[in-house]
Design a protein around this nucleic acid. Structure first.
Lengths: 141, 141
DNA sequence: CTACTTGCAAACTCTTTGCACCATA
DNA sequence: TATGGTGCAAAGAGTTTGCAAGTAG
């Protein structure tokens, strides 16, 4: 269902700001509220940060975007249309890479079968050390 | 190595506050800075929140405690002496359960073998819906 | 027209920092 | 007694909210 229909069917209105927020998240791929705001202000000055927050929340409620917590607190949003993926975050260099959800299917299946737990894969973030940093710091510490 | 030795060997001092912070985290199991502070003030009034923050940071640097991000931003600390575990957080009821790290060993091994990524399992949190909530909401939405 | 939205500014929460006094080693 | 540590208060980041003016339907 398209954004206008999604909105109207629930009594919300279609505003330029809402379209921009969705567009920003879709285009940026991994967008913090701050980053989305910067992208939007670039093409439409005057849009307020609080509007970004309100609309990210709304779009998430509608299921059009999701968020995950990469690093210390800054939530990162992606469009729900993007293929679902797991994040790998390197705590040394901060690099964020994506991993197809299929790769964690065994884990998800096990959690469901043995613990009845329905994991939200799109929200899953694995912290650690990326290949590059692991090599670089191999002999330290 | 004990706390006093850990500290002294790096030129830090042993203070009652530091002992309390470590004790709070060990006792509480899952402690936010705020929770640790409450626990400490209970037995030693006057200890400041900023001291808790400073010492949690220090203890983590020494490898005596670890933290994970459960829910929206509030970091949760555990003693490093506790067995390493993964957190399962239910986004409906907020229940936090633990899962032995062995259970995710296949995933960790795969990440290392195929992506060179060294996952920090103790920091891993899986969000989703617990068995109870999954049943309760099965027919909604 | 009416109710939903927005911009703006203030309020909030969580965390960090500067500084003078205090206490460990 | 020489640092390193603490309490206190103020400053910061990130996010939320109240309200009057604006606008989609």
């Amino acid at each position: 269902m398209s954004l206008p229909d999604q909105l109207r069917s629930r009594g919300y209105r279609l505003t330029p700001q809402r379209q921009l927020v969705l567009e920003a998240v879709t285009t940026l791929g991994h967008a913090t509220p701050e980053a989305a705001h910067a992208w939007i202000v670039d093409r439409s000055p005057g849009v307020n940060l609080s509007t970004i927050y309100r609309n990210l929340e709304l779009l998430e409620e509608l299921g059009l975007v999701n968020h995950a917590h990469l690093s210390h607190g800054a939530p990162t949003y992606h469009a729900a249309t993007a293929p679902e993926h797991v994040h790998l975050v390197c705590r040394r260099c901060g690099t964020i890479s994506s991993l197809d959800s299929d790769a964690v299917e065994p884990l998800v299946g096990m959690l469901r079968a043995e613990h009845g737990f329905h994991a939200d894969v799109g929200h899953l973030t694995v912290f650690g050390e990326c290949a590059t940093c692991a090599k670089m710091y191999a002999r330290d510490e």
